[in-house]
Design a protein around this nucleic acid. Structure first.
Length: 488
RNA sequence: GCUCGUGUGGUGUAGCCCGGCCCAUCAUUUCGGAUUUUCAUUCCGACGACCCGGGUUCGAAUCCCGGCACGAGCACCA
């Protein structure tokens, strides 16, 4: 064989799962997931948790859960979310984050860095209005504050901290240059004033304590450095953020973490939901709460019987691409079916039930509860009353088989039992007994919660159990009388 | 408008950096079939794609140039 053929680089083997992280050292990888606690976690947040969590696990690294709660006016945090997000993280990943950081606890740290920035002259206090600065930005001209001596900036900064300015009157900017090609990067704002008397932070220990708050780009940049974050994986809408922060890192003499991006994900059936829109619709009664099964929140999915394993498999399969994608819910459901099927007890739910006399049938019945383990906890039912319930639609036909029971033929409103053994290809129909209960199956549809009335086979499964309603689909037991359809 | 990014079957995704093993991977959807006393599960099979146009090359999904389409950022939001 020719020597050059032997030297050829072997083609990489077909990759399974996520690609390797660049410059990742086993044991030295630090990742973070940084939601705004202005509401509970949604389906889309799960991506950040799953992907970052998976990498942390792969490299035996650290996953930080960081609450980016630095806006008390436009996106005010929700107090409950601090706890619920941690619980949901643990539910989804099967373990808690390795470290939890709350930005609002660390305002002093950000102030210190702002002080350094101003003292060293790569940050300045700008007293222009937002509108005026917008014009400077597009005209690529420096604002008058830039020419002010640096001593004066230190005075202004102290003034900001001391309450000498009102919100909107002063902002700390990072000097990046007004000649930046990308307008988004030109002397970007790092800290601003918030009226936390009128809009106190919901955490009582913070409340109205601070008036000078960092903006995301500054807070996040400083915190990533302080926490030793090595890799950032985030939405591509934050690409400019990376560039802004890199400029800041250069000023500080730091090295920016490795960064990867993903595009936007839309779910066909859900379209667009925003946290604030959901909050509004919950308040005005359109939805029952954050766990309303029509909502794409993690709590709703959990309540609906979607397993964390399914969510993880789903996001891992989508992996990390910068494409904007739109996925059907059926993909998630298919993952969930795989997780749930073998352990979901089978149960009969007879919709629009018709009670029919059964002549000549057995006096009792035994049905399999778990097809994969036929002997485990079989379903025993007493048929002494001589009646069964079947679905009205099934009752329209004359010849069928009651599942696991007997062949029947219909004569003048009666079911006449035939063979115990299955003899022909007649359709198989599910059924239930007199001791069954009235029950409601709730089906989440786009605009409403449809209620399907029927009779449910007697059972002992506690609330929260994911069952399979034979011939219908998977559902969660809510209470004695109600089931919630997960998916077909 | 300026800046940045992305284009592989119905939907996602692998391959693209380092051209040949790609008449293109896997999953899902749909349709057929087998097993099954569920319209579930499992198994088998089928349909189905490299945005367009040039170029380089013996050879291009992969490299180059030019279009087109779509998305994001340009907030004292995150």
């Amino acid at each position: 064989m020719a020597p050059e053929l032997l030297e050829e680089r072997p083609k990489a083997e077909r990759r399974v799962g996520l690609p390797d992280l660049e410059d990742a050292e086993e044991g030295n990888v630090v990742l973070r997931f940084a939601p705004n606690p202005n509401g509970p976690l949604s389906f889309g947040h799960a991506r950040g948790l799953v992907i970052n969590g998976a990498y942390a696990e792969r490299y035996n690294g650290t996953l930080i859960l960081r609450f980016d709660d630095t806006d008390t006016v436009v996106k005010p945090p929700m107090l409950d979310a601090y706890g619920s997000i941690q619980q949901e993280t643990e539910w989804l990943l099967g373990r808690p984050a390795d470290r939890v950081v709350i930005a609002s606890d660390r305002i002093g740290v950000y102030h210190e860095h702002a002080t350094v920035m101003i003292e060293r002259g790569f940050g300045y206090v700008c007293t222009c209005t937002a509108e005026a600065f917008r014009d400077f930005r597009s005209a690529q001209t420096e604002c008058p504050c830039r020419a002010v001596p640096s001593k004066e900036h230190i005075t202004r900064w102290k003034g900001m901290l001391a309450g000498a300015y009102k919100p909107g009157e002063a902002v700390v900017r990072v000097k990046t240059g007004m000649d930046q090609r990308n307008p988004a990067l030109r002397d970007w704002p790092a800290l601003r004033l918030q009226d936390t008397v009128a809009n106190p932070h919901p955490r009582p220990e913070i409340g109205s304590k601070h008036q000078v708050w960092p903006l995301l780009d500054f807070q996040s940049a400083i915190e990533d450095h302080l926490q030793g974050v090595t890799h950032i994986i985030r939405g591509k809408d934050l690409m400019d953020s990376t560039r802004k922060q890199t400029l800041l890192y250069e000023h500080f003499g730091w090295t920016y973490p490795n960064t990867m991006y993903w595009g936007r994900v839309k779910v066909h059936e859900w379209g667009g939901f925003s946290t604030s829109a959901m909050r509004k619709d919950i308040e005005n009664g359109r939805y029952e709460g954050w766990n309303d099964p029509r909502l794409p929140t993690l709590s709703a999915l959990k309540r609906r019987g979607i397993q964390p394993e399914a969510l993880r498999a789903f996001w891992l399969e989508l992996a990390i691409t910068q494409k904007d994608i739109s996925v059907p819910l059926s993909t998630l459901f298919s993952h969930n079916t795989k997780v749930v099927d073998s352990t979901a007890p089978r149960l009969a739910f007879v919709r629009d039930a018709v009670r029919m006399p059964l002549s000549g049938g057995p006096s009792e019945a035994t049905l399999v509860r778990y097809p994969d383990q036929p002997k485990k906890d079989p379903r025993h039912h007493d048929l002494a009353s001589g009646h069964v319930y079947i679905e009205r639609e099934d009752s329209m036909t004359t010849s069928f088989r009651l599942k696991d029971l007997v062949d029947v033929d219909q004569h003048e409103g009666r079911l006449i039992a035939g063979d115990i053994e299955r003899r022909d290809q007649r359709p198989i129909v599910h059924w239930t007994v007199d001791t069954s209960q009235h029950a409601t199956l709730i089906v989440a549809e786009e605009d409403r919660l449809r209620e399907v009335k029927g009779r449910l086979e007697p059972h002992q499964h506690p609330a929260g159990t994911v069952v399979q309603l034979e011939r219908i689909g998977y559902a969660v037991v809510l209470d004695d009388r109600r089931l919630l359809l997960a998916h077909e």
